[in-house]
Amino acid sequence: MCGIAGIFFKTPGSNQVLGRALVDMLDGCQHRGPDSTGFALYEDDVEGLRLRFLVEDDAEGSIARIRAALAEHGATIAKERREGATFVVDVHYDGEIRPFSYAMEHAAKLVSIGTALDIVKDVGTSHDLDATYRIGEIRGSHGIGHVRLATESDVKPESAHPFWATGFADVAIVHNGQITNYWKMRRRLEARGFEFRTDNDSELIAVYVADKLAQGVKLETALEQSVDDLDGTFSFLVSTKDGIGFAKDRLAAKPMVMFEDDGLVAIASEEVSLNRLFPGRPLSTTEPAPGTFRTWSRSI
C-alpha cells in the first residue's frame, strides 16, 4: 500500500537533478506511505559495477564477509563507502551476474547491483533518506521511487521498495497494489531456479520482468504480458539502464497520473507529486487507461 513516482529525462546526457526531483515527488505523496521510502537511481558515476548492501547488524563482520566474497569471485574493489545503514562498493567484475549476486547475498543483505543502478531504501520519509543518503545531490538520467505503508510484511529496510530484480543488473521496480496470484507465479519462477528474498509481492514483479528481459523479450512486450499474467490490483513502474515503463491492471483500482513534455516524463500515484516539479503551474496530465502499459527508452 503505497505511493510511487518515476522520472525520465529525455534530453541527452544524464547529468540531471534526478535525486532532488524524486525526493520532492515522494514527499508530495508521503501520506500514502509513512513507513519507509526508497529510490532506484540511474547515475553516471558508477565505476564498473555498483553493489549496495544493508549492513545494519554487525556492520564490520558483514563488510569483512563482503570483501572476502568479492575476492573469492574475482571482483576487485574500485571504491567503497559506508552510508546510513548501507555499504556501497564499486567493483570490476566480468563474470555472470546471477550466480555472483546469489553468492553476494550469502555474505550480506544485497540491495542492488548495476552498472548505473543504485537502490537506496530505508525506514523513514523522503526527507529522512535525503538527510542520511544525500539523495537530493544525486544526478542522473532517470529513476523511480516509492513510499510504503506496510500492510502484510515488516517495516524493515529490506522490505522497502524499490525491488531489485535479484540476479539481473540494472532492473528495478516500484509497485502500488496487491498481486493475488503471487504464490502461483513465485513457484513457477522458483521451479526455474530463481531465488526470492522476501514474501513481498513486488519482488515478484521485478524478477518476472527481469526474467523476460533475460530471455530477450523487449521491455514493452514484458509489460504487455504482465497485464495478462499478473492477477490483482497494481500500478507499477519498472526501470532499466535505458529507461522506464509502467503497467496498470485491468481493474484500474490503483491510481497513476503522468505528465510529459519535450524534456521529461514524470509519472506518479497522484498529481500532487507531479506538481511538486512545477509549483504553481496547472499541468496537462493524463491518466493511463486500465490494462495499459508504456515505455520510454533512450536506446530507441
Binding site: V272, N275, P282
Partner: peptide, 27 residues
C-alpha cells in the same frame, strides 16, 4: 491560488458561494 493538486480543497463547505481554484485540485 497555487492549489498544486492538493487534496481536500473545499471539503465540507456549506454555503452558497463561488470557489475558483486556479490550477489543479487533488482528491
Amino acid at each position: 491560488l497555487n492549489p498544486d493538486a492538493r487534496h481536500h480543497i473545499g471539503v465540507g463547505l456549506v454555503a452558497p458561494v463561488t470557489v475558483k481554484v486556479r490550477g489543479s485540485a487533488g482528491y
